[in-house]
Design a protein around this nucleic acid. Structure first.
Lengths: 255, 255
DNA sequence: TCGTGTTACTGGTCAGACCAGTAGTAGAAA
DNA sequence: TTTCTACTACTGGTCTGACCAGTAACACGA
């Protein structure tokens, strides 16, 4: 069994990236620290500035570093942000082959578990925050302002966001937010269909009520109930726009 | 309320990235297609090659494009890969301790829901595949080959992969794989500690048994049972390496 | 028909230059 | 003395133009 190593053509800029990332892992560099300027780096690494530059581009693109043009202190090492995950997730969601049903299925699952964790673990202040969002929804549903529907969508999104935040899990938060974003964007793109918007209009009250029920279960620390309520609400929200087969793939996650 | 737009300093290379990503989203470019060469791109975008180059670096770093040096056909647009998520996830987990628990929490949740969906929806052939992996594990646990432990890790990973595949959800599959990968990478890096490896060695039998039990529940279509078993198995796997507080954040998801 | 060498490209790297913009400081104004 | 201002010496962003090692494809000879 010829057990050779696969040859890896190493590009110089990747070596620089690795060295800097290693320094961060080892704690020699941490968020807030400044990197030497590009001209200094080209000397310490014995490469041209283009090469240093490409390394910096990669580090910037992956959310490791933030450049500060004009600042003599050089680029800054920044802390991890969920936004780093959001980009690739959005890309994946947009990709051909990822069906809308899968997206909804994934959302159902994420929001359900978020609600569960929120009910089980989060603090009273956070529960206040969630209930406050639910109250916002009720108020909006009662109003008959012209753009209440659109505003309702935003506030509903904020409500779910608060729950994800309450789950105290950054990953859940980032993925949930990404999926939410992807779905609303798809909705916006496909909504030449006026009826859907109008249909939602008729259900604002229902949605607000759902949210209130969910907030209450989270308040009570009823983890299982919160999960069930969250999934049921979301399922109801999408049900009418799905085919029979699609519903079948969602139902195992509901209730 | 002065409602001005926040100014966005746009770097040229970012505009190029956006244009190319937009083309991909709109389906005008898709996996396998080739981008024009850098010299061609600098003309079409009216920028210098450095700028084109930095754009390409970003696209490459975010897993959108694969360069082929020397190939006259230019860089290739590649399909989405979970590896794209794996890097930022690993980085996030490396940060200040706290997030390892989050990673495990997230994994617990993903694998649990995967098992649930697999049990509820997947075909008989897929169930065969899962049971076959479980059998591999049992065989390995019984053997006493030198590198059985390391091999066991790989096969265990394959077992979970099969379950995620059976969930028929690409998002679940990709995120699950990324989290799995990130966790094993962390384990590898922190494993100066020999004892952990040895401890696992003592538990190969247990793990294989767990897997068999999970496979059986999936075979039976026992969705709730599959979810419970999957979470319990994973929880047991990590329990001893966690603090009391970390365990508390995981327990709501178990059982 | 089948190798084979040439060729015209590719991406990776280098060098050196200019620009707009910022932090910090030295000096002018109060 | 304090406050404001102009300057300076840097920063990152962009450009130009060049060389290299490597590859795909094609024309060519066997």
């Amino acid at each position: 069994m010829m057990n050779f190593e696969p040859i890896k053509k190493v590009n110089s800029y990747e070596l620089i990236v690795e060295q800097i990332e290693a320094r961060i892992r080892d704690g020699e560099l941490s968020a807030g620290d400044r990197l030497p300027g590009e001209r200094r780096l080209m000397e310490t690494f014995s490469v041209s500035r283009s090469t240093v530059r490409e390394a910096m581009r990669v580090l910037h693109a992956t959310g490791v570093v933030e450049p500060h043009a004009g600042d003599p202190r050089g680029s800054e090492v920044i802390p991890f942000s969920p936004k780093t995950l959001q980009r690739p997730l959005a890309r994946m969601a947009h990709q051909e082959g990822t069906s809308r049903a899968e997206l909804i299925q994934f959302r159902l699952l994420l929001e359900g578990q978020s609600a569960l964790l929120a009910a089980a673990l989060c603090s009273d202040e956070t529960k206040d925050e969630i209930e406050s969002r639910a109250a916002d929804l009720a108020e909006l549903a009662a109003s008959d302002s012209a753009d209440a529907v659109e505003e309702f969508g935003r506030v509903l999104s904020a409500f779910h966001h608060a729950i994800r935040l309450a789950s105290s899990n950054q990953l859940l938060q980032a993925t949930g937010q990404a999926v939410d974003g992807a779905l609303t964007e798809i909705a916006r793109q496909r909504l030449d269909d006026e009826t859907h918007g109008l249909a939602r209009r008729g259900r604002l009250g229902q949605s607000a009520q759902d949210a209130a029920g969910l907030a209450e279960r989270i308040r009570d620390g009823d983890a299982a109930g919160a999960r069930r309520t969250a999934t049921e609400n979301i399922y109801r929200f999408y049900r009418d726009s799905l085919t029979e087969a699609e519903r079948a793939t969602l139902e195992p996650l509901v209730g």
